[in-house]
Amino acid sequence: MKGKKLKIGIYELTGCAGDALMILNCEKELPAIFQAVDIQSFLMAKSDNIDDELDVALVEGSVTTEKEVEELKDIRKRSKIVVALGLCATVGGIQARFQDPQKWQENFRQVYGETKMELPAVVSKPIDAYIKVDFYLPGCPISKEQFLNFFTRVVKGAPPESYPQPVCVSCKYKENDCLLKNGLFCLGPLTADGCGAVCPSHNLPCVGCWGPVQGGNWTSEFYLLQDKGFSREFIKKKMANFAGTKLSEFWKQFDRRD
C-alpha cells in the first residue's frame, strides 16, 4: 500500500535472540526491509532506537522477569498490532517447562542458591499470558521464508489468515518416508509446520520445535507411541519439551481420564 511507512519495533525478551537474528539473516532482503518500513526500534541492529507509537511490534522471547512484564505491557499500549515472534513468545519456549511455582522455585534455588537477585524473576510464560496478541509466528527459531512472507503481507496491509497444518504436510512435500510409521518418536503430526520438515528431511524425527499445531490429536499420538513401546513418562516428557504452556489443558483432561 502506498502512503506512510509503517512504524515497526522489534523487541527481545528472554530467549536465545534467534528470531531477531533470523531477521538479520535475511541478508538479501535486509535493505528492502529497512526501506519498506520505518524501523523505530531494533536493538540488535541499531543504536538510535525510539520507543514511541508503533504500527507493528514484533516481540520475541518469553516473559521471565517482572521488568519484562512491564516492558511488554508498555509495548502493547504503544502498538496497533503485536506479533509473537518465535516459540518463546508464542508458547513460552523450552524454559516454560516449570510452570508449577513450587517446582520452579526449587529449580531456581538449585542454580542461584539463596542469593537475593536484584531483578525479581517470574515463571516463564508466553507473551499472551499478559497481553493480547494479534498474530503468532512460531518456530525455534522462526523461518526466514515464513517471516518474509508474513512481514511482506503486513507491509502490504493484508496479514495472512492462518491455515494451520502439521509438519507432516511439508514432510510429504519433501517426499520423506514416515518416521512415525517406522517406529521412531516423531512429533510431526502434532507440530505446527513452518520449518519445511527440516529434521525428517535429515532422517531425524521431529522434536516439535514449532510448538503444538492447532487441532493436533495428542491423545491418539500418545497411545500410538505407547503402542510402539515408549513409556508413558518418556512420552510425556518428550511431548512437553517444546510445547510450553500450550498443553496444560490437554494434560489436565488427559490425566483426569487416566
Partner: peptide, 18 residues
C-alpha cells in the same frame, strides 16, 4: 536484561539426545 531460563535444570531427566 534477561530472566533466568534454568536450562541446566530443565534438561535433567531428559535423554542425551533431547
Amino acid at each position: 536484561n534477561e530472566g533466568p531460563r534454568l536450562i541446566e535444570r530443565l534438561v535433567i531427566g531428559r535423554t542425551p539426545e533431547e
